[in-house]
Design a protein around this nucleic acid. Structure first.
Lengths: 203, 203
DNA sequence: GGCTTTCGCTACGAGTCGTAGCGTAATGCC
DNA sequence: GGCATTACGCTACGACTCGTAGCGAAAGCC
């Protein structure tokens, strides 16, 4: 969330209810209006708060939408399904389900686009959205190595590179499938994707 | 480009010079201002044309930026490097080079985000940007099958699915690497990506 | 020359932005 | 309980952008 300086202990505290109402209203507006037609004044009205309250907490539309969308990814987890392939399929399906939500589709790509010219915004996205997924890649690999499905990584540097590569491939493919190709990343697609990811095109 | 009705053969023709100037000015403004701060009035001034001329040819910012960015992908081709791996590396590097341009980064993701709520816009992107890349996937696979590096596809339906899958994986990974991870998709990264794509994680 | 369409220019109402100012409400500290 | 401090709701504001309308002039085809 927004960083409130912990030194301030005096004065009226910020309403946590208002926070939740604003983020919910933002997602609602994303569904109904989309990114470009979403206005902060409208969000304030939907949330039942004053527009000035919004500007006290968020620097602008970008930061607000990142926080609103980030909450959607809280549900991500990696259930142990017994094999690397099954684990991958499970988590990719979860990711695809979240990304299929209209509020995620409209908002996420727009803030990513804005982040190309705003380092602070990109860092905010990384911290609140991306890292939560990258953790799943690390967990899944550790499990697979414990099962003997993947060889252990000797070199820590090359290990980090591999995680980044896998992450770009998984997240990138699902995002591209959902947003650009505009086709559902359903079970059939996820099975095919996992097969190529694990065994390559040559089979 | 924009569809001018071919029946209209009379009257003053539209200036092709103005078209080129507008698209160039759009890319210039994308570099300097980014998507959100780009205004059509500013583009018109840069291009040396009246704002009304812009609105006569494009419905709005979305369509204009799609056309401006699409021209960047005209340079894509698939040189024959002798092996499937080398072909993939070559074309992925080309794609990454284009996507690293600031005007492509700022503009492309923004219009993709807008396209989640605008079918016509998504179709415009598909026609002018995506299909040009998908053609390369088809060519590359045909070459690899001729060389015996890939098995021939018996079922046309499953063949089309595979092309779509490969395309989502390639384009998605490069886009995610460049825009979200904000790391360069350089030769080293492309080599690692190609290896996983061809042989899988289990090696 | 006449017809048609585009061009540059100006002007306009509508809408959004982000901020300032004010009085009030809610908390911690003494 | 009183005080300082901060958040809140509300209103109003100038600045900006949007997309369109109307005009006279320009450039092509018959």
């Amino acid at each position: 969330m927004q960083s409130r300086s912990p030194a301030s202990r005096t004065g009226r505290p910020r309403s946590a209810t208002a926070d939740a109402a604003i983020l919910a209203a933002t997602r609602e507006a994303l569904v109904e209006l989309g990114w470009s037609k979403l206005t902060l004044g409208d969000v304030a009205t939907r949330a039942g708060v004053a527009k000035t309250t919004l500007y006290r907490r968020w620097a602008g539309k970008n930061e607000l939408v990142v926080d609103a969308v980030a909450e959607l990814f809280d549900a991500l987890e990696l259930p142990d399904r017994g094999s690397l392939a099954a684990d991958i399929e499970g988590v990719v399906l979860q990711f695809a389900t979240i990304l299929a939500l209209p509020e995620a589709k409209s908002g996420l790509m727009a803030v990513v686009a804005e982040a190309t010219r705003d380092d602070a915004l990109r860092e905010r996205i990384r911290a609140s959205v991306v890292d939560r997924q990258k953790r799943l890649v690390l967990e899944g690999r550790a499990r697979a190595q414990a099962r003997g499905e993947l060889p252990p990584e000797p070199d820590p540097a090359s290990s980090a590179r591999t995680v980044d590569l896998i992450f770009d491939m998984v997240a990138g493919a699902v995002v591209h499938r959902t947003l650009v190709s505009a086709e559902p990343a359903d079970e059939e697609w996820v099975r095919g994707f996992t097969r190529v990811l694990l065994h390559g095109l040559g089979d």
